[in-house]
């Protein structure tokens, strides 16, 4: 599904290149549940952003389902992202001015899904995540765990083939964290490919494969 070949990404600092990703190659099969581990600053987020096409890279090749991402225009990349990928943040990043319902609905608006269909999809997912009662609340009225549930629901609403989660449980306690991981496991069993970045061995254990990053390179596969 995803093929990264010799990816380099750097920033210039005092005339020198500081490598954020350093000759990184990675192959991910459809249906995998990959955990990326590594110390803080090892490049996990950078890698996820590159895979999500939210961020560019300086050298190397990236194929997504056979499509050469490094050759595509921004607009086409946005549309591939829109079609295939759901992104989950450590800091939830819900839109403060929108209710739970509206937050979840937003990606569908960008995909120009019809109103009746939108309603059905959002109702479905609210039900599945057991947050029907919270649909009219604003983010600040929810607990951290609940906010992350909304974040996940929002990522899943477009029925993505791939979920990218950047330390999704970093701000949650262990019970909440386990619940989210179980949810990921279920989704994975339904056929969704998942890549998560995490600090915790415990969380990584939910995955089918774990890689370890160090200074922008894979140190253990």
């Amino acid at each position: 599904m995803i093929q990264l070949d010799h990816i380099y990404k750097w920033v210039k600092s005092g005339g020198r290149r500081v490598f954020l990703l350093n000759d990184l190659s990675l192959h991910i099969e459809k249906g995998e549940f990959l955990s990326i581990m590594g110390t803080s600053g090892s490049g996990k987020s950078t890698l996820l952003n590159v895979v999500a096409m939210l961020d560019g890279f300086d050298e190397g090749e990236y194929y997504f389902e056979g499509e050469a991402i490094h050759d595509l225009k921004a607009k086409k990349r946005t549309s591939i992202f829109n079609e295939n990928i759901g992104f989950i943040f450590q800091a939830y990043h819900l839109l403060d001015e929108l209710t739970v319902y509206e937050n979840i609905e937003t990606p569908l608006l960008y995909k120009k899904v019809k109103s009746s269909e939108r309603k059905a999809l959002v109702a479905d997912i609210l039900d599945k995540f057991n947050i029907v009662g919270k649909k009219d609340l604003f983010p600040h009225q929810l607990s951290g765990g609940q906010q992350q549930l909304v974040g996940i629901a929002r990522a899943l609403i477009i029925k993505p083939k791939l979920i990218l989660a950047d330390e999704p449980t970093g701000n949650l306690n262990s019970t909440q964290s386990d619940e989210i991981m179980k949810l990921f496991k279920e989704l994975n069993e339904e056929g969704v490919t998942i890549i998560q970045a995490t600090h915790s061995e415990n969380n990584a254990a939910y995955g089918s494969r774990t890689i370890k990053l160090l200074d922008g390179s894979i140190s253990k596969n």
Binding site: L54, F81, Y110
Partner: peptide, 13 residues
């Protein structure tokens, strides 16, 4: 700015 960032990750062009 934050809103813009989120919206872009939600698929906004």
């Amino acid at each position: 700015a934050k809103e813009v960032g989120i919206r872009k990750t939600l698929g906004s062009g």
